[in-house]
Amino acid sequence: MTTYFKNIIVGLWTVLVGMRVTLKYLISKPVTVQYPDERCDLPERFRGMVKGDPDKCITCMYCVNVCPVSCIALDGVKSDLPKKVVNLEGKEIKKLKDVTKFDIDISRCIQCGFCVENCPTGAIYLSHDYENSTCSREDLVYHWAKK
């Protein structure tokens, strides 16, 4: 009999406690924003769409080999006048090839960032773009090489 009344009182009390919590949230500011009009600030290391920069790329094929889902296709031809590229450590390296094909299929990409970690020149990088919807699957393959 004591547990019966205790249960009722505890039940009523917990309802009041819950109502206090929900009231607190009711009068506090919502955390969501009106998306297309306002946007949240992205964190610095946000992993958005992977983008390529054919000017920096030395066609070392590290990214192609390391990609777990094989979404990068890369090719180059020997350049007539070799250029120099500054790598991430500040040293200059020779760029012997011109990039002819630099395709990233973002429908396959899992944004793991392995390619970015392995790229010696920073030619492939994770951007802050996240609105990637298209009307066809072909449009999801981005061609970064210069025509």
Partner: peptide, 13 residues
């Protein structure tokens, strides 16, 4: 609206 604000959303806007 009440549901939205209790769940820290905005509800219909």
């Amino acid at each position: 609206k009440v549901a939205g604000h209790i769940q820290s959303r905005m509800g219909p806007m």
